[in-house]
Design a protein around this nucleic acid. Structure first.
Lengths: 129, 129
DNA sequence: GTAAAACTTGACACCCGTGTAAGGGTCAAG
DNA sequence: CTTGACCCTTACACGGGTGTCAAGTTTTAC
């Protein structure tokens, strides 16, 4: 498949796919004319990249982590620590978001209970912690 | 309290506090010499701002949402929809992160089971370390 | 063989909260 | 008054993934 097909299959723009390759996250075969060709497995790989990116891992970190997903041989203690710390970071991030969600949910809830009516009981201050 | 005190109390840099003010998220009284003075309540407000920022709301959105936390009078159906969509976004983000966490946790788990020990199906474990 | 669609590389721009430096003013203690 | 800590505004830079334009090449379809 060519870059347009992979783009369509994953939702990642061609620009992004080239960027992933640039950063060493994705590889491609080239046609005689120089155009990129991908195997079917690239779809899943791109999805994984997107997932890790959206979790806040930068491309350098993903480059460290990605190979070990496909190749057990290169797993090292250093990499284990790296993974562990990333996992920790993501979990902390989830916790932060959960707290913020409660703040937002509290506000939304008030709208639902008394739409457009004052309650005499302020929201944000109480739900902050 | 002055900006340094507020900074110390919240962990936000003076730079950030001025930026929040610039964006209309935070207000301050000024001394005759032009220096900012904050009431105690500013501490909580800054914490809220930080929380919303880390949840991915940008300052324009926060500016829309923040007033309604302290002043019910300005709540509108439009704002309700806004809050709702932000809440939805945050929840989707949490779900995404959860999935990614599972990926990372899976990898970390593998390390725990076989910490640096060859398994017999590895080809070149020694090569790279 | 020709046109259109798709691809190539390279470069520049954006977002947007934050860091940082310059050059100067304020304020409280000595 | 002086000193040193603190604060002021202005302005430039960054990260890092993505959008987008430009100018040229390849592939596909007719």
């Amino acid at each position: 498949m060519r870059i347009g097909d992979l783009s369509a299959a994953t939702g990642a723009s061609p620009r992004s796919l080239r960027y992933y390759e640039d950063q060493g996250l994705l590889s491609s075969a080239r046609s005689t004319g120089g155009q990129r060709h991908y195997p079917e497995t690239a779809v899943e790989r791109v999805r994984l990249i997107q997932s890790l990116l959206s979790a806040g891992l930068n491309s350098a970190t993903i480059q460290d982590v990605l190979p070990c997903i496909n190749n057990e041989a290169i797993r090292t203690p250093w990499l284990a620590a790296r993974l562990d710390s990333e996992l920790e970071r993501v979990e902390a991030q989830i916790e932060d978001l959960r707290r913020t969600r409660e703040i937002l949910a509290g506000l939304v809830e008030q709208y639902r209970v008394e739409p457009g009516v004052t309650t005499g009981n302020e929201v944000g201050a109480a739900k902050l912690s």
